[in-house]
Write a protein that binds this DNA or RNA. Structure first.
Length: 447
DNA sequence: TAGTGCGGGGAAC
DNA sequence: GTTCCCCGCACTA
């Protein structure tokens, strides 16, 4: 019986590959595969039991990046870097901003900084902050492993995060810088008002102050040729992507990394499908604390929802493809052009006139946009280009306005009653999160 | 100041 | 022996 279960698990492991390739390795293996056919595109939000093989040239992989708050954990093995998830910081009052957002802050990685962080008060209600630890790996934090074996970087994740996504590192940094500005700038200045507005959004909203930085990072991504995921199975989405790439090149963006990132997200979707097919987790014979059955059920929940949101099943998705490339071009052009309008852009206050003429809508909260997009409502930018529902790949880690919006929506959507996460609600949120990852496109570059 | 990586050490299994 | 965590240190941005 046990043996049979192990066999199943081994089969699962064999199938658990984001790119769909058959892989059978464990990060602890003495020898890792050298005949890697397909290099994975970088995943900033790896969840569940994921194995990835990145190129050694992948800068993100080199830096062992993750948008989860991961801290280094000593495994007494210098060849394998192990990181464990810190969870997420929430307001103990379970407060919401006036527009309904929840506070999901990024735990500081440094122990001292984290302790200091928990002594601080909620930026929204001044209540105390509470760290929700990650217990997604048999009661222990989800762990990520990194191992450099030229010419690849092997990544393995164990466990499924049982908490909301925190702010990304960039979001947290932006929030801190805004808070600093908040304390440094007289309260009567427009800047102060904006800071307060942003703070009211729990800091999740990207500071437009960070726009130059963001653009810079985009350019870095472009130069790094990070995303090598090939468009293996071309869909209409991907054709649109190609078109967008051409268009955005025409706007001086060179390659559009955010679109390429969407391609990698689609690769991730394949992985999730694999998770579902095989019954989830990979198998580590060395780790008796494993099998996290709930991980699979969670993934399955996510996946079933994601299925419903798949392009082919969203009648509005294809419908809006046509305006997409036009929208993209205008959007990105505007994004650069609006950099000087940063002091006015982020506000939900309707009395503030729009500065941006196309693309990003300065008056509408990102969360609202995301909600509407999830409902399949087309969005009009100022060029009257429909933003297709299928173009809302909202990846919180991604430096894009809508991506950020999705993140906030996720944060809105996860209700917490008392100190407990309610499973049903959480599933909905996870699903929304998956909407984030699997269904929509990354579009709006913010940085 | 915070993020990151490394390593010592102890506890639990 | 393995895995977990805490802690401190050094380096970096």
């Amino acid at each position: 019986m046990l043996r049979a279960a192990e066999d199943v698990n081994m089969q699962q492991e064999d199938l658990a590959s984001p790119n769909g390739d058959m892989i059978s390795w464990d990060i602890n293996d003495i020898k890792l595969p050298k005949d890697v056919k397909q290099i994975d595109s970088f995943q900033e939000w790896p969840d569940c039991y994921v194995k990835c093989i990145y190129s050694s040239d992948d800068k993100n992989a080199q830096r062992h990046l993750s948008s989860w708050a991961m801290r280094n954990t000593n495994n007494h093995n210098s060849r394998i870097l192990k990181k464990s998830c810190l969870g997420v910081v929430v307001c103990s009052n379970n407060c919401s901003t006036p527009d309904g957002r929840k506070m999901y802050l990024r735990p500081a990685i440094c122990d001292k900084a984290r302790q200091k962080q928990q002594r601080k008060s909620c930026p929204n209600c001044n209540g105390s902050l509470k760290l929700i630890p990650c217990r997604g790996h048999g009661g222990y934090p989800v762990t990520n492993f990194w191992r450099h074996e030229e010419p690849f970087i092997f990544f393995q994740s164990k466990g499924a995060h049982d908490h909301p996504r925190p702010e990304t590192k960039l979001e947290a940094e932006a929030r801190r810088s805004i808070q600093k500005a908040h304390t440094a700038v007289p309260p009567t200045s427009p800047r102060f008002k904006r800071s307060r507005d942003i703070e009211s959004l729990t800091g999740e909203m990207q500071s437009q102050d960070t726009l130059p930085l963001i653009i810079s990072e985009q350019e870095e991504l472009l130069s790094q040729d990070n995303f090598r995921g090939s468009f293996r199975d071309k869909t209409s989405e991907e054709h649109v992507l190609d078109n967008c790439l051409s268009l955005t090149e025409g706007y001086g963006f060179g390659k559009a990394s955010y679109l390429i990132q969407h391609a990698q997200v689609m690769g991730y979707d394949k992985h999730m499908n694999k998770c579902k097919q095989v019954g989830m987790r990979d198998y580590d014979s060395r780790d008796p604390t494993e099998p996290v059955a709930s991980a699979y059920s969670e993934c399955r929940e996510q996946q079933s929802w994601a299925k419903n949101m798949e392009l082919g099943k969203n009648p509005l998705a294809d419908k809006h493809h046509n305006g997409a490339t036009t929208f993209l071009a205008g959007l990105h052009c505007e994004t650069l052009g609006s950099l000087n309008a940063v002091d006015f852009g982020i506000s939900n206050a309707p009395e503030i006139p729009p500065i941006v003429k196309v693309g990003y809508h300065p008056l509408r909260s990102n969360a609202t946009m995301f909600e509407e997009m999830c409902e399949g409502k087309p969005h009009l930018n100022y060029n009257n280009c429909n933003i297709p529902a299928s173009f809302c790949q909202l990846s919180p880690e991604d430096p894009y306005l809508i991506a950020d919006a999705a993140h906030h929506y996720y944060q809105n959507a996860l209700p917490m009653k008392g100190n407990e996460w309610h499973i049903e609600d959480e599933r909905k949120c996870v699903n929304l999160d998956h909407c984030n990852n699997e269904t929509f496109f990354n579009l709006f570059p913010l940085r």
